[in-house]
């Protein structure tokens, strides 16, 4: 596989929420094997962007290409074929509450493969080991902590070995240690399996650890205000708001501290 090859292309995306414009004419590319972070203040449309990229929302205008397929125009079998290439971890995990962790991870295998049951169990257990959840196979989602739920959700998203993983706020609501563990899981999966990650977050420590490249969405301009590696944006961005975001400064402290 060639490096620096776009695996996702977003072209001229426009989203509206109940008549209000969320963002307009947004275009960017995600390259194969990178950890790509979508950043922005609260309410700027990060999660909306993610949901457009995974086909949950239909855009007002624009297209999202996953490899060479346009997910926005697909339906039926074609849509399912595109979805096979991606996995999604939702903010709260979205594990199915009536199933054990093993059953949760096994579900995509049951639905999309004709593997024998014992093989499915083995694969599902191995995915749980991948996210350090060995021994928790028979637990119900309600019996484990928030961080474990998120890891189990990654295991489920990985069930069919997708090429792209979308993570919605993976470190929100986690303590720093659990959050760091999750980051190292992400990096490990990228190293070993070459998975491309698209992550929505605004946890700065996590961004510096995992992100190869970030884009920043802005509520005012309804578009991308900055893109590039996080350290570069912090140190060299022309945009005052972008620098303040990375330095965690309020508008006032910017004035008082020269």
């Amino acid at each position: 596989m060639e490096a620096n090859q776009a695996i996702i292309r977003v072209e001229g995306l426009e989203a509206r929420y109940g008549g209000n414009l969320v963002f307009d004419n947004v275009s960017f590319q995600v390259e194969r094997g990178e950890v790509f972070v979508i950043l922005g203040g609260s309410g700027c449309g990060k999660s909306t962007m993610l949901k457009h990229m995974i086909g949950l929302y239909t855009p007002f205008a624009g297209r999202v290409w996953i490899q060479d397929d346009d997910i926005t125009a697909s339906e039926g079998a074609e849509r399912r074929a595109i979805l096979r290439k991606i996995g999604v971890m939702y903010q709260m995990g979205a594990l199915f509450g009536s199933m054990t962790l093993l059953e949760n991870v096994r579900l995509p295998l049951e639905e999309f493969t004709d593997l024998p049951t014992e093989a499915m169990d083995l694969i599902a257990a191995s995915k749980l080991r991948l996210v350090q959840l060995e021994g928790f196979e028979q637990y119900m989602p309600a019996e484990i902590s928030g961080g474990m739920k998120k890891r189990a959700a990654i295991a489920r998203a990985m069930a069919l070995d997708p090429q792209i993983l979308f993570l919605d706020e993976p470190s929100a609501g986690l303590d720093p240690i659990t959050s760091a563990e999750l980051d190292s899981t992400i990096l490990k999966l990228r190293e070993t399996l070459g998975v491309t990650f698209v992550v929505v977050t605004h946890e700065l420590p996590s961004i510096y650890t995992i992100a190869d490249r970030v884009i920043m969405l802005d509520k005012e301009t309804k578009g991308i205000v900055a893109s590039g590696p996080p350290e570069e944006l912090r140190d060299h961005s022309e945009n005052d708001w972008v620098r303040r975001f990375f330095l965690r400064e309020t508008a006032e402290s910017e004035v008082t501290s020269p």
Binding site: K51, I54, G55, L56, R79, R80, L83, R84, I86, V88, Y90, Q91, M92, A94, L95, F96, G97, L107, P108, E111, F112, R156
Partner: peptide, 13 residues
Amino acid sequence: VNEEVDALTTMGL
């Protein structure tokens, strides 16, 4: 509400 329905949809189910 827990986004489980979304999860099903993006799993192709």
